[in-house]
Amino acid sequence: MIKEKHLLGLEGYPAENIETIIETAFGFREVLERPIKKVPSLQGKTIVNLFYEDSTRTRISFELAQKRLSADTVNFSASSSSVKKGESFKDTVQNIEAMKIDAIVMRHPYPGAPLHLTKFVDAVVINAGDGTHEHPTQAILDIMSLKEHFGKIKGLKIGIIGDILHSRVALSNIHGLTSLGAEVTLCGPATLIPKDIEKLGVNVSYNIDEVMDWADAINVLRIQMERMGVGLFPSTREYRSLFGITHERLERHDKKLVIMHPGPMNRGVEIDSNVADSSQAIILDQVLNGVASRMAILYLLLGGKQEAV
């Protein structure tokens, strides 16, 4: 059903694949609502979660998806591994592959690392975030959540707000949403908008109120303090006043704008607590859809049998 062996990013990834994944994910979403949430689809498959960078939610989400599909999983994190002994990336992954595995889910701090990995191993590679490049499974779960809410993607107006420069979530969302026919506007400080991003088929605005007026939904990105060089924006106070999704700002708009956030949130900086916890926010739906869409991705890429669902 899906020809592409790996899921490395959504740039150039066929729109039909994204649609197939989301359709399958809605099936798994139903499984997740059952009292017994486990299916035998990937019984006998071995998946390694190779995390070169800290992650809580993405890793738990992948692990749960794997367990729900009855796959065998192994977790590897850089802090407890041979990385510290100075072993090269190539040696590490070739050793892991030599143990006969079917797929590697990898998070890595450097852009392009998953593509690099495909040169050294035969296993299916799924990108769980590579530096400031892509985070395709996050974008797929975001798109699934929009589909769930609006029933369609084509023609939707989506704002992506905040630190675009350091965001793999933004880049994957841009590729995925535009290929499915949504309109995308990016909004954030000029210093956090990367060069020539308009060439990817999106609009750029520096006026958050205009974007909130225009959009059907906004995806509010985390201000990534840990990636921040010095002085890309003057202060979190100023950020909040110019770009923060505050309660007051939301009140000024009469329509019911859908609020998304990939987490983890800096409450009081890019988003106010009462906005994040409001009925307009679909942030927790995103989390559940994350497990369902990762189940769909693993299932489709690892050749699970349809009848097993």
């Binding site: 392009g112 590579d130 400031t132 490049h133 990367p194 060069k195 990817l200």
Partner: peptide, 17 residues
């Protein structure tokens, strides 16, 4: 921190321009 030319290509690749 630029590691390649700054352009839409560096933006797509997530690399510092």
């Amino acid at each position: 921190e630029g590691v390649m030319n700054e352009s839409v290509i560096s933006t797509k690749l997530g690399l510092s321009g």
